[in-house]
């Protein structure tokens, strides 16, 4: 009998929390879901706005690529703002859950659009780096010509310039690859976009390494020029 009573008490103790939990689930406050939804949307639209501004400042990205990437950012931002209005007017818990979930699953802002924009901006920074390196290479070549005309042996400088030229050319190839990868990222294939992002990043790192080598070689060339420009006795 004792055993029977203890079993009954145990059953009651186990069932009570489950019932209470069920009550909690059904008592979700729509306001909390609305807050969650609007916070998620505001965070995304702010990030989109930030990257849209940075894309506007790029100098070396083609109009076609910019138009495509910024066009998608604008579309996503507009749709998220519309969704925000809908969420704020929604009181049905299931509908709210679906709407909040769609902020992530339907738009993939952090998986596709932000890395795509950041990747394109990074490509532009790399191109700026390349332009400066090319400018320095030209100036060093002119100084080498002047020194040679004055009877100096500039073979070491010429070798450094030639190596730097190869580094810059290799870096340029990596940049082209990187831009192509980032520009191809699309919401229609989120998993493919992840692979493209990783490939684009790898190409960026390779470009950076090539340009760093070019920079080092040209810094050495500048030192050689300074040595040769000093009066010889």
């Amino acid at each position: 009998m004792k055993k029977l009573i203890l079993s009954a008490i145990a059953c009651v103790l186990l069932v009570l929390p489950i019932t209470a939990l069920g009550a909690k689930t059904t008592a979700i406050d729509p306001g909390k879901l609305q807050n969650l939804g609007t916070t998620m949307i505001d965070k995304r639209t702010a990030a989109i706005q930030k990257y849209d501004g940075l894309l506007n400042q790029t100098k070396y990205i083609s109009d076609a690529t910019l138009s495509k990437v910024q066009g998608e950012l604008s579309r996503v931002k507009g749709e998220l703002e519309t969704l925000k209005t809908k969420i704020l007017g929604e009181t049905d818990i299931d509908a709210l859950k679906a709407d909040v979930k769609s902020i992530a699953t339907n738009y993939r802002v952090y998986q596709v659009f932000l890395p795509q924009s950041a990747g394109i901006i990074s490509v532009d920074r790399m191109k700026t780096y390349e332009v400066k390196l090319t400018e320095l290479k030209s100036k060093i070549s002119i100084k080498a010509d002047e020194l040679e005309q004055a009877g100096k042996d500039v073979s070491a400088i010429r070798n450094l310039i030639s190596t730097a030229e190869g580094n810059i050319s290799a870096g340029n190839g990596y940049i082209t690859t990187s831009e192509s990868k980032f520009a191809s990222m699309a919401i229609t294939d989120p998993e493919g976009a992840r692979t493209l992002k990783l490939d684009g990043r790898t190409a960026l790192i390779s470009a950076k390494q090539s340009f760093s080598e070019a920079r080092k070689n040209m810094r050495d060339a500048v030192q050689e020029i300074k040595k040769l420009a000093q009066p010889s006795i």
Binding site: V100, A104, T105, A118, S122, L204, K208
Partner: peptide
């Protein structure tokens, strides 16, 4: 120009760090 190149390299490095800072887990709800 070498100074400008240092600045350009730094900006390029920062842009890669910015790319890396984007957490795709934000899209997992």
């Amino acid at each position: 120009l070498l100074g400008e190149i240092d600045t350009a390299e730094s900006a390029a490095n920062n842009s890669i760090s910015d790319l890396d800072s984007i957490d795709e887990n934000e899209d997992k709800v």
